[in-house]
Each structure stands twice: as C-alpha cells, then as structure tokens.
C-alpha cells in the first residue's frame, strides 16, 4: 500500500441546533486513506460516520480542518478545479430507494454524471450506459425502466453504476448494504470488491456490520460520538483491539458456531451514548467505559500511534 490519496486533518463538522446549541457530529478527526485500499468505518448510529463521509465528498462543508485529496486542499480550490476534483470523488448512498429519482429512467440516472460533465453524447452515451449496466450485473434493457421496477439489490447496483460513470478514483460507500437482505449483501460487497480490482478504486466503506467490514476492509476505523477511537489493519484490530470501546464492539459479534458460544466474554456497556450537543469532558467514551479513570474526565486522550500502524485515543496507553 503506497501513497496517500486522501489526507484528513482534524476535520470538524458542527451543525447549528437552535440559537445557542451546536451538534458536534464530527469533532476533530485525522486519518489518511491510501491509494487502492478499503478503509472501513464503523460506529453505532449517531456516531457521525455518515456526516464524516458526506464532509469528505464535499456534500457538507467542514467547519474546521482540512481535507487534502491527491495533494489538493479541497476547501481552497476555485470552482473549476473543484468540479474536476469532485468528479474523482463519488458516493454510494445508503438507501437505494431514496437515492434514485423515481421520475427518471435508469439510463438517465446512470448517465447523469456523463451529462453534467458533457462527457458523452448520442450513441456513445448509450453505449456507455450499456457498458456500465453490464459492469454492475444488470442487462441493457434495464436502461428504459424506472427505479421502482427493481429490487433493493438491483437499485444499489444502479447507484454504483451512476457513481462509476464519471470514472472516479475514490468512492465513499455510505452503508451501501445495510438496507439490503442478508442474501443480497454479499453480492453487492463482492461486486464492490471486483470493481475495486478492475478500476483500482479506493473505498471508504461505512457500515455497522463488523463481520462484513472485516471481510472487505484493509484497515478499520472505529468512531464514537464524532471522534475516532481506534484505527488499525483489520486483522490487527480484530486480533488485538486496544480501545475499550472497540473491545466491547467486537465482543458483540455473535459467535459463528454454537460450540464457540460462551467462549468469548461479552462486554456489556451501560447506558446510551451521550448527546453530541453536550459531549462529556475529556474522553467522549468515559461515561460508559469499564476502564474509566480520573484522568479521562479531565483530559482528552491524544490520538497516538501505539504500535506500528495502530492508532488509538485512550489514556490506558498513554
């Protein structure tokens, strides 16, 4: 794994909620994504995964911090080069129902990027649509149908084809499989893996299914309340989780065989995640952490490389 394609530096995204409150959906996250890899991003609902994903692709503007794509600071681009960079970063959405315009035919949906950048016209456009449909495992006659005539899995394939149309190099997949049947999930994940091989794509794969994330990702980042808790290679993270939150998450994966049941200790967390409007002082996880110490309330733990390529933010390793 070589050069960095996306460098995220202390990115924050705050939303206004009423006059005096701000929701700190993403609150200071730094990491990098390397060319050709899949970085899995996990975390429970409301941890800011989707917000982070949308900030990285530029749907939201970061409140603070820098996103550097291929050496270019995204916030400092003029309109023209922004449009060019935008083409290289695409997104696959969570809900295949809501992410396709019900009034547009599938062919036009897929060609939306082609039309926006005026890449192809007439028969070349048609040819490209057919090519993309076949790439994602659909057939050419599907181009003239409407989205509601397809199943969830097929719709997600349409969404993938739409993102691929402009030949991006980096794709943020925002829970692309969580709305699908389990039997279809594997198909879509394998399709994503095949496409990655073929086009040398880089993925940020957002999900909450740990087993699936482990299957597709090279590295995994764990988020909690708008902050990154731990980041390591997938195998490493599963074998040797450092952060108490990661440990609790991993212990929640059901055993794959009945005979293994009970072999692992299940770490149960008390309570609910605190509100991102008023996050706890110090470490955001301290209110539910089984290993919380006095220092956790006073000081925010630093994001550090504990072992080779294994990052975490926790006072236990300080």
């Amino acid at each position: 794994m070589g050069e960095t394609i996306l460098d995220v530096q202390n990115v924050k995204k705050h939303f206004k909620a009423g006059k005096h409150q701000t929701i700190k959906s993403v609150d200071g996250i730094s990491f990098d994504i390397r060319k050709g890899e899949t970085l899995g991003l996990v975390g429970e609902s409301g941890s800011g995964k989707t917000t982070l994903g949308r900030t990285l692709v530029g749907i939201y503007e970061a409140t603070e911090g820098k996103v550097i794509f291929d050496g270019r600071d995204l916030s400092k681009l003029d309109r023209k080069s922004k449009k060019m960079v935008n083409r290289e970063i695409q997104m696959i959405f969570q809900d295949p129902q809501a992410s396709l315009n019900p009034r547009m035919k599938v062919g036009d949906i897929i060609a939306e990027g082609l039309d926006a950048y005026r890449l192809k016209k007439g028969s070349a456009r048609k040819q490209r649509i057919i090519e993309l449909l076949e790439k994602v495992g659909l057939s050419p006659e599907h181009a003239d149908r409407f989205p509601h005539e397809f199943s969830g899995g097929q719709r997600q394939r349409i969404g993938i084809a739409r993102a691929l149309a402009v030949e991006p190099s980096f794709i943020v997949a925002d829970e692309p499989i969580s709305a699908l049947d389990v039997s279809i999930q594997a198909q879509v994940v394998n399709l994503l893996a095949d496409l990655q091989q073929e086009f040398g794509l880089t993925y940020l794969f957002i999900a909450h299914d740990l087993a699936m994330v482990n299957h597709i990702s090279d590295r995994i980042g764990v988020m909690y309340l708008g902050q990154m808790m731990e980041l390591a290679a997938s195998d490493e993270l599963f074998a040797e989780p450092l952060h108490p939150y990661t440990k609790a998450l991993l212990s929640a994966i059901p055993a794959s065989e009945p005979s293994l049941r009970g072999a692992k200790e299940r770490i149960l967390l008390g309570g609910d995640p605190p509100s991102p409007i008023e996050p706890p002082s110090g470490c955001p996880f301290r209110t539910r952490c089984p290993a919380a110490m006095e220092v956790c309330a006073k000081q925010k733990p630093q994001w550090k490389e504990i072992k080779n390529e294994h990052y975490t933010a926790c006072h236990l390793y300080g």
């Binding site: 935008n86 939306e112 990027g113 926006a116």
Partner: peptide
C-alpha cells in the same frame, strides 16, 4: 439522497430543478 447524488455528480442548478425537483 438523489438530489445530493446529483449535486455530487456536478449537475447544474437548472438541471437539478428541472429534472429532480419539478418532476
């Protein structure tokens, strides 16, 4: 999400209005 996707794909305001919002 399809409006977001269109914005992400670089679709112009005019087209977002005429193809996604109005229909």
């Amino acid at each position: 999400e399809y409006v977001m996707a269109a914005e992400k794909l670089g679709t112009s305001h005019f087209k977002i209005i005429s193809k996604h919002l109005l229909p």
